[in-house]
Design a protein around this nucleic acid. Structure first.
Ligand SMILES: [Mn+2]
Ligand SMILES: [Mn+2]
Ligand SMILES: [Mn+2]
Ligand SMILES: [Mn+2]
Lengths: 227, 227
DNA sequence: ACTATTATTTAGTTTTATCTAAATTAATTT
DNA sequence: AAATTAATTTAGATAAAACTAAATAATAGT
C-alpha cells in the first residue's frame, strides 16, 4: 500500500473512491453518469476528471466504454477507505460519537496525508478490523476480508447472521431499530418471507418479529462461516 | 467563537492565521511582503487574497497601508489556532508522536470543519491549556492566557522560569537539548550573561551550564507569577 | 526637493475544477 | 434499418488561487 506516494488532490481522491464503490456494486466498468450521480456533479465534469485520472494511469478508460480502476487506482481507493474507516472508529470509540454522526466528518479526515499518523491511529485503536457500520477496514497492504454482508431482503430463508450494518442511517430509522430492540451485534435468523409484500419474519434476541420489505432492505447481516 | 460560521477555504484560513501570527510579533498593521514571505508566495498573490478577505470583512485594508485583522478575523484565527494546537496535543499525548513531528500534520488537521469534533477532542484530551510546544490553547470563546513566555536571550539576569518551548524544532537542536539534559518542564535560573558574545550561564536540574546566544534565542521560559 | 530604492498593486496568464449547451456515439424501439 | 432516446464527449466559460512582468506609490538618501 505504500507505492511511491502519488500526489493527489482531494477531488481526485473522492472520484477514485466513488469509482471503487460503484464497481463493487456492479463489477463491470463504471458508467460516467453513475459517477456523476454519486459525486453530485455533471457528466461532463466526470469526463474531464476521468481523462486526468487516466493520464495518471489510475483508471482504465476508453471513450464511451466506461472506466475501471487500475491496480494502482485500487490501492489508492483502499488507502482512502482505510483512513475513512479508522477515523470513524476513532470518533465512535474514543470521542463517543454515535455511528450515524461520523460519516460526514470522516469524508474530510480521510484526505489527511500522513502515513505515520494513520499507522499510529490504527495502533491507538487496537488494530480494529471493522468500522462502526460493520464495514471491513483494509490493511496497509490493501488486503481485507471481502465483505460477506448481505441485506436481509437479499438472503434466502433460514439464513442466519449477525447484524452488522445499515443502509439508511437516518435518525428515524435508528429510532425504529431501538424501539424494536435491534442493535449491531445481534444474531438473527430469517424464518419466512411473504412473497406478496416482501415482508420477512425473523427471530431476534427478544423473540420473533415481522419486518417490512423496506426495513429488510436496510439491514445488513454478516453470514457465518462464509469464506 | 461560534459567529455564524463563515465559509472559508483552506487557503483563506492559512492567510488569516499568518496575518494573526505576524501581528503578534509587531502589533501594527502587517505588510504585504511579510505575508508573502510567511506564506511562501508572491506579494501579488497576497494582494489578491487581501482584497478577498477585505470583502468578507475579515481584515481591515487600505491600499499601501498594510492589513490588520478585524474582530471577526481575529476570531477565525483563534479558532484555527485552537484546532491546530489541540490536534498537536492529541498526536503527542495519545499517539506518541514527539513534539517536533506534529506541526506539519496539524497544518492539515486544523482545517477540518466540525465544531462537535473539536469540542469532543478537547474533552477527550482533558481540556489542555497548552500545546506540546508550550503555546496556549484558545478557548471556544476565543480567550486564552496571554503568553508570558520569553526567550532566554530576552530575559534579564536572575530571571527564573519553566522551559516551555523552542523556536527551532530541528532534529539537530532537539538532539542538543537532549544531550544537555534540557527538557520541557525543567526550571531554569539565568545566572549571568556575557556581553561580548551573548552567551548565558544558567542553572539547570543537573548543575550550571553555559549556553551560546544562538541556543538562548531558541529556548522559551514561562515566567513565574506573571499576570 | 530630487533621485534611487523598496514595497505594493495592476494587468495579463496559467492550472484546476467546475458548469452549460451543443455535438456525437450507443442503445432501444418501431 | 431507420428513428428515437439515452449516454457520453467536446467546446467554450467561469471562479479560485497561483504566477510573471510592468506600473505605481511610499520611503530613504543625498
Ligand atoms: Mn472525502
Ligand atoms: Mn463507515
Ligand atoms: Mn494549514
Ligand atoms: Mn504548536
Amino acid at each position: 500500500m505504500r507505492l511511491y506516494s502519488i500526489e493527489m488532490t482531494l477531488s481526485e481522491e473522492d472520484y477514485i473512491k466513488a469509482i471503487y464503490h460503484l464497481s463493487q456494486i456492479d463489477s463491470k466498468s463504471v458508467a460516467t453518469n453513475a459517477i456523476a450521480e454519486q459525486m453530485k456533479t455533471k457528466p461532463s465534469s466526470v469526463t474531464d476528471m476521468i481523462k486526468k485520472l487516466s493520464k495518471k494511469s489510475l483508471v482504465n478508460y476508453k471513450k464511451y466504454q466506461g472506466v475501471s480502476l487500475s491496480e494502482e487506482g485500487r490501492m489508492v481507493a483502499l488507502s482512502i477507505i482505510r483512513k475513512h474507516r479508522l477515523w470513524e472508529v476513532f470518533m465512535v470509540n474514543k470521542l463517543n460519537f454515535s455511528w450515524d454522526e461520523v460519516h460526514v466528518v470522516a469524508e474530510q479526515l480521510e484526505h489527511i496525508k500522513s502515513d505515520t499518523l494513520i499507522d499510529r491511529l490504527d495502533a491507538h485503536l487496537g488494530f480494529p478490523k471493522v468500522d462502526p457500520h460493520g464495514d471491513p477496514i483494509p490493511t496497509k497492504e490493501g488486503t481485507f476480508k471481502k465483505s460477506v454482508k448481505k441485506l436481509i431482503s437479499e438472503l434466502p430463508i433460514l439464513s442466519e447472521g449477525v447484524c452488522i450494518g445499515v443502509n439508511d442511517s437516518s435518525a428515524a430509522f435508528l429510532k425504529f431499530l431501538d424501539k424494536n430492540k435491534i442493535a449491531l451485534g445481534d444474531t438473527f435468523k430469517i424464518l419466512d418471507r411473504e412473497d406478496f409484500d416482501g415482508s420477512v419474519s425473523i427471530s431476534t434476541r427478544v423473540g420473533t418479529i415481522r419486518i417490512s420489505e423496506q426495513i429488510a432492505s436496510n439491514l445488513y447481516l454478516e453470514i457465518r462461516d462464509a469464506e
